[in-house]
């Protein structure tokens, strides 16, 4: 591992190609990476009987990119990551649409799984995006942050000493 990798980050309104993002990760470390883990977050029904019609994603331009880069850098300090990509969409999304992509390439699967999960947990609690749901009934509501996401993210703090 000559130096820490950089994470390619994109915040965009248009859709992303999951397979192409994987291919780029794979190509960027051919022969070195033994494991690639990719995560996609999708728009799903908000609650049983309360069908989501669409989702609007607002963000804080500039801070989003900076925070995502900081999260990736933290992952690089903790795990042996060879390549990383994060894509987050903003604007109007429909049911079933892709929202977010996080992909990590590493020599070993443990590092790839942990780094990808850490990135998503940190993104969920630190990256300045906000979701507004529009239900089929026409009702609009800003999604409330879930305590479980905070708990999940904090587990990485306590895991720190042994995770290196």
């Amino acid at each position: 591992m000559p130096e820490l990798p950089t994470c390619v980050i994109a915040v965009q309104t248009h859709d992303f190609d999951y397979g192409a993002l994987y291919d780029e990760l794979r190509r960027s470390c051919a022969g070195q990476a033994g494991a690639i883990v990719c995560f996609a977050g999708l728009v799903r029904d908000f609650a049983p009987g309360q069908d989501t019609d669409s989702l609007y994603l607002e963000h804080y331009p500039g801070m989003c990119e900076r925070e995502l880069q900081a999260i990736a850098d933290e992952a690089f300090q903790r795990w042996a990551v060879q390549a990383c990509r994060i894509v987050h969409r903003v604007g109007e999304l429909a049911r079933g649409d892709q929202i977010v992509f996080a992909g990590v390439a590493s020599a070993h699967r443990g590092d790839a799984f942990q780094a990808a999960q850490f990135i998503m947990d940190a993104l969920k609690t630190r990256a300045p995006f906000w979701k507004r749901e529009t239900l089929r009934s026409g009702e609009r509501l800003w999604v409330e942050a879930r305590d479980s996401d905070q708990v999940q993210a904090q587990q990485w703090d306590t895991a720190r000493p042994s995770a290196g």
Partner: peptide, 10 residues
């Protein structure tokens, strides 16, 4: 300075 609710992306 930015003021906002807890984030809900991802």
């Amino acid at each position: 300075v930015a003021l906002f609710d807890p984030v809900t992306g991802g």
